[in-house]
Amino acid sequence: MKLIIMRHGQASWSAPSDSLRPLTGAGRQEVRQTVEQLQGEGINRIVASPYLRAQQTADIASEVLGVTVDTINGITPDDSPVDAIEQLPEEGNVLVVSHMPLVSALTALLCDGVPFGGPGFGTANAAVLSLEIPAAGLASLQKMLPV
């Protein structure tokens, strides 16, 4: 299976709470550019954090890829990467839309078996992982996008 871990696009700081921060126009554009690079990955499922900016990122991905979006509550910025792994689908090619620092910690945990020292993720960056099942230390980082 492939697991593509993506950080949401650039978001506005003007919102009543962190969970309600919307994407900016530039954020929408950068998401579209990254998702267009993911079209050949065979993504058949999208899961996203419930935060507005992640939902908007997933909606753009859904539009471009023609895939539905499921919301997972346990993949917000401060959630545990160990707990997040337990909530991920165990089959298919899945796009996971979430936040820093979780995207970095989750990538490190899946690839290296430890939840620290993962790659840096700018807004709308994505890591394409290859793995049998989502479990600590079993993934291989194929590439980082955008390139």
Rank of each mutant, 00 (worst) to 15 (best):
S130R: 15
F121I: 13
D78L: 14
G74H: 06
G122A: 13
P146T: 08
P77W: 08
H99A: 06
A61H: 13
D112N: 10
G92D: 07
A126G: 09
E30T: 14
L145R: 08
V47S: 04
G117C: 07
N93F: 00
D112Q: 14
S49M: 13
I5T: 10
I60A: 07
G66R: 06
E86G: 15
S62N: 11
P50Y: 02
Q142V: 14
A136N: 06
A105H: 03
G118D: 02
S19G: 00
V147Q: 07
V96N: 07
C111K: 14
L23C: 07
V103Y: 06
K143S: 11
G120M: 07
D79Q: 10
A127G: 01
S17F: 03
L129D: 11
L102I: 02
A136V: 12
M100V: 15
V67S: 04
T24D: 02
G120P: 00
V114Q: 05
G66A: 12
V103C: 09
N125M: 11
M144A: 01
I133E: 14
N73V: 15
I72D: 00
L102C: 08
Q87D: 08
V31T: 15
P146S: 02
V147W: 01
A54H: 07
E91W: 04
L38A: 01
I5A: 11
A126Q: 13
V128Y: 04
L106R: 08
S12A: 10
S49F: 06
E63R: 12
A127T: 13
P16Y: 02
A15T: 10
